[in-house]
Design a binder for these strands. Structure first.
Lengths: 333, 333
DNA sequence: CCTATTTTTGCAAGCGAGTGCAACAGGCGC
DNA sequence: GCGCCTGTTGCACTCGCTTGCAAAAATAGG
């Protein structure tokens, strides 16, 4: 390995003609240092290119400033924008994000949390997958904070951030009803995560309340390609749906493309579509998709402010609203 | 701050009835430990939930295992997929990625590198922006390795990974020529990064060689919205282009949407479009865009294997090929 | 000018690990 | 039984930093 030769506080101290502690105090907000020594220290530090070693500081302070982001499929538009919001806000709170990609094996969320523990992360934020209870218990017991985003399952001591999935799905049903639709369908993936299932249940429930049957179809992962397949399955039914709620925007894009290019259906006159997430592509004029916006900045803000709080006792949970963004894929509006 | 109470090697040693060094050696590959003590140590470690403190280990070994990824606009499809590839491959090489978002201010790439130094990152990979020479010099002098992706500018001692932008642009010109196009245009952003400019030059150069003028237009950042504006500017010219090379796919999507929905032009019969990056959306049937694929996995592989190499002397640079992906936005093919 | 108080400063003891060195145990050949 | 070699183990030092404590310096009060 290449010899690393970062400059240390000792060297700065020597050059500035002060003690090592003086250097340390200069870089510790609130410590007692005279204006004169501070000046000499910063001067020497600049000249030498000194930077406090956060690893060593973390060792002493018992606080690394590291927050782990545990994610799979991080190149998905929604995930990517959430990561962007989180990293941005973490940095504003002078913390730093470690990114752990769990695309590989199935137990890798557990592996990721082990990494988080190894690096003594102050907290872990889980955006996908659900770890074993034993490992989350270990995290909490070790004093590491835990944030679960859209994971729903209850974990005492962790912060759980969820959306009003059920209500949003209900609202979309009413919007489609008002648009004059009568044959409702729900396009879901086979991922079956709690938030996706909540949307399905909310939508179907609203249908039942109005005595309208909702045909549900589930296929594959939550991707564009699945949307294409779901369109083929739904649009070839004997009673062709005129309203489809897609469990997310990616699915909706695939479904709309198939509906238009393979089935020659016009949106929204022959088919109304609603999505979820409000990814950037939803606003592109080829889709112009009516959808529910994930409040990514707000989610990030909730997570980061909670991490800064001293008290973490008890079960914390936040339920945020996904706002309906009206565009052209539903009549009326 | 919450009291952190991670279990230390000392506690494991006590429980296993061995010395602290024995614990250390158990978790150090290649160290000399008897089968018996190793068993007792791992047993105690499991029971207590012990994990080696990577911060402390990094301190001793002078090697943190941390690699910083410095990125702006990380929710852009191309960037996101590159991050995914990098994090994945770094993890396979048992390193961990720190993600630094530089969306904020202009000097924040420098800030990011300072952070990298503070956390004693073994390396930094820069995906966007260009830091001051003084700070990169400091990184290199400190023994930190530096990878610049698509930044082009020369930095002695760093690994520079670039694409054959110029050749790719030339190839696209020939492809468009063969498709029967005669009025060429180049849609660029105002970002003016070296790789974007290389594409522009390559395309225009090829045009000149064939005595064909290329109308160049530059606008805004490299986004979908800029593509819309560029379409408006280019398609209202008195000699309307019938072939447009867009400097990236995002721009191309915006341009195609505007061309179709605002100018009612059919692609590819009335207008051929070529993009760059091969983002996921390029394959969506609404775009079906002919484009050049960024070899993200290969880029990541080059970076990661270079980091693992012992020697880093001299100026290292790799020039990779962007492969042409034929789809339906160009006639023929 | 002397004493009491407030800063400022340096010393030294950690934080949690890795590792060279020497002591030690056990196995083998003679 | 003795000497030698191999393999394990523990001691103690080190990495770069923070921080309590006490000494030293600066300031204020009389």
């Amino acid at each position: 390995m290449s010899r690393k030769i970062f400059v240390s506080a000792k060297e700065v101290a020597d050059r500035a003609g002060v003690s090592r502690s003086a250097v340390s105090r200069t870089f510790t907000p609130g410590a007692s240092v005279s204006e004169e020594t501070r000046r000499r220290v910063t001067e020497a530090a600049d000249a030498l290119g000194y930077h406090v070693n956060h690893l060593a500081r973390g060792l002493m302070r018992n606080e690394s400033g590291i927050v782990c982001l545990i994610v799979s499929e991080l190149d998905t538009p929604y995930r990517a924008s959430l990561i962007r919001a989180l990293t941005g806000q973490l940095q504003s709170a002078s913390k730093i994000a470690m990114l752990i990609n769990t695309d590989r094996s199935d137990d890798s969320v557990d592996q990721a949390l082990r990494q988080a523990i190894s690096y003594r992360a102050d907290a872990s934020i889980i955006l996908s997958g659900m770890p074993d209870r034993s490992i989350t218990d270990l995290c909490l017991k070790s004093g590491q904070r835990l944030v679960l985003i859209n994971r729903d399952e209850d974990r005492e001591g962790a912060l759980m951030i969820n959306l009003n999935d059920r209500e949003a799905a209900r609202r979309s049903f009413f919007a489609l009803l008002r648009a004059g639709c009568r044959n409702f369908a729900f396009a879901n993936s086979e991922a079956m995560t709690p938030s996706l299932m909540a949307r399905e249940e909310g939508f179907c429930e609203a249908g039942r309340e109005h005595g309208l049957e909702v045909s549900v179809e589930r296929f594959g992962p939550t991707t564009y390609q699945s949307g294409v397949v779901l369109a083929q399955r739904l649009l070839t039914r004997e009673k062709r749906p005129d309203a489809i709620f897609c469990v997310n925007d990616l699915l909706a894009c695939g479904l709309m493309d198939a509906a238009r290019h393979q089935f020659n259906l016009a949106v929204p006159s022959e088919l109304c579509v609603v999505g979820f997430d409000d990814i950037e592509q939803a606003s592109w004029s080829s889709y112009n998709l009516t959808t529910f916006a994930q409040p990514v900045e707000q989610i990030a803000a909730e997570a980061v402010t909670w991490l800064d709080q001293v008290t973490s006792a008890g079960s914390n949970s936040r339920r945020l609203d996904a706002e309906l963004v009206w565009r052209g894929s539903v009549r009326g509006g």
